[in-house]
Design a protein around this nucleic acid. Sequence first.
DNA 1: GCCAACGTTGGC
DNA 2: GCCAACGTTGGC
Length: 159
Amino acid sequence: MRYWLMKSEPADVSIDDLAALPNQTVPWYGVRNYQARNFMRDGMQVGDGVLFYHSGCAEPGIAGIARVASTAYPDATQFDPASCYFDAKATPESPRWLHVDVQFVRKTRLVGLPELRSQPELENMRVLARGNRLSITPVEPAEWRFIVGQLLGATDLVN
DNA sequence: GCCAACGTTGGC
DNA sequence: GCCAACGTTGGC
């Protein structure tokens, strides 16, 4: 069991949007960065914990908890010429972009960036590193325990 | 393989 | 809208 932080722009898919979807599940479409893709393809397993993070908005921060709900499979938007995520170099025979399904677990209070940065326990957290732009980053078990257990008080979700 | 130019992310 | 940081592209 591993843990991840996944960024989503709430104008696109917010934690409330995720909760309202069928099966409360969304294919994590639109990732066009190889490192982030590789985390989904090579690192993720069904049941992994996800910190659902709102980015590109007025109050960036952790907005909820989710879980990985599938292994990686091709992102359909890469084949769709009408999609802004279309990739002319990708074919169904040789897909370039893979993603997992992400399922809602719980909406939480918003733990904003300044609060995250103020915690000595999180000083090495990957998403907080200078210049980080990755939309998917691994979360250390100790970081997960601190955020979910201490900051959010969701002790039932710590393990 | 190098590297300059360009594009994107994302906080502020 | 600005800008730092970093990834990708493409000429050589």
